[in-house]
Nucleic acid binder design. Sequence first.
DNA 1: GATGGTTTTGACAATCATTATCAATAACAC
DNA 2: GTGTTATTGATAATGATTGTCAAAACCATC
Lengths: 140, 140
Amino acid sequence: MMKRNTWQREAVREALDTTEGFISAQALHSALHASGSPIGLATVYRALGDLASSGEADSLQSPDGEALYRACSTAGHHHHLICRNCGLTVEIEATEVEAWAKGIAAEHGFTEAAHVVDVFGLCADCTRPAATTESPDRAG
Amino acid sequence: MMKRNTWQREAVREALDTTEGFISAQALHSALHASGSPIGLATVYRALGDLASSGEADSLQSPDGEALYRACSTAGHHHHLICRNCGLTVEIEATEVEAWAKGIAAEHGFTEAAHVVDVFGLCADCTRPAATTESPDRAG
DNA sequence: GATGGTTTTGACAATCATTATCAATAACAC
DNA sequence: GTGTTATTGATAATGATTGTCAAAACCATC
C-alpha cells in the first residue's frame, strides 16, 4: 500500500498548522468548510489520524472525551498548558516530570512507562473577571 | 434537593469498591447485571457521575475516549500509575508535580490550573516477556 | 403502619463523536 | 494517455453518553 499525496491531506495539515491551540476533528472540518473547502468529514478524521500516528501532530482527549489535535513543531516528547476558555496552548518541557514519572514507575516495578501530563487553566486574558462587558470567545 | 439513599447507588458504590482497576460505566453495568442486579444503565451513569463529582470516585479518559472510574480511598487530589496490560492501578502522590504544574501555569499567566497526570506502563508481572507459556489476562 | 411530597429510577429516544462501507474518483508509474 | 490502486466522501453503522418522563421508591411525618 503506497501513500499518495492529495490536496485534502495537505489542506488538513495546513489547517492544523495555522490553528493556534488544539482543535477537534469536527471543528477542523467546519473551519475547512468555512474556508470554502469541500473536504469530507471522514477524510479529515483519516488525515488527522495519519498525522497523529506519523508524529506530525499530537492528540489528547478533552475532558468531554473528544479527541483534540494540534500540529507540533517539537518532534520530541512534550506537554501542554491549555487555556480551557480560549484554547490557547503553550508547549512546555517537563524535564522534572519526565524524571519523576520514570522514578515512580520504577519504584513500583513498572516498565515502559508513558505518561499523560497536561495542565488546563485560564490564560492571563481569560483570567480577567467575566463581569466585564465582554466575555472572551471560545476558540474553535 | 435532598439526596436519597437507594440500593442502586449502594450497588454501584460497592461494585466500584470491589473492582481492581479502572472500569467503564458500561462494564460496571454489565458486571452488575452478571451478578443478578437489574439496575439500569442510565442509573449506573448517574451514580458514577455523582460519585465522581463528590470525590468518592475518580475518573479519567481512556485513550479510546471512554470514561473510566475507580473508587478512591484517598479523598484528596492524587494520580495514578496504571498497568496497560492487566489494569493494576497504584494511587500515587505527586507533590513535586503539583508544585511544578502550579509553577508552570503561573509562569505563563495561567490561573485556576488543573492537571491531568497519569502514568501508564507495564507492571512487574506483566513486564516478564510475553514469550512465556502464559500471557497475563486483561482485566475487565 | 399509612400517607404524601419529592427524588430517583429505568426503558427508550436522542445526541454526538467516530468508524466502516463501497462505488466513484484521482494519483502515480509506465 | 492509460491502467492500477489508494483515496475520497456520502451515508450508514456503531458505541458511549445524556435527556425524557411516567412509574416507583424514599423518607419525614402523622
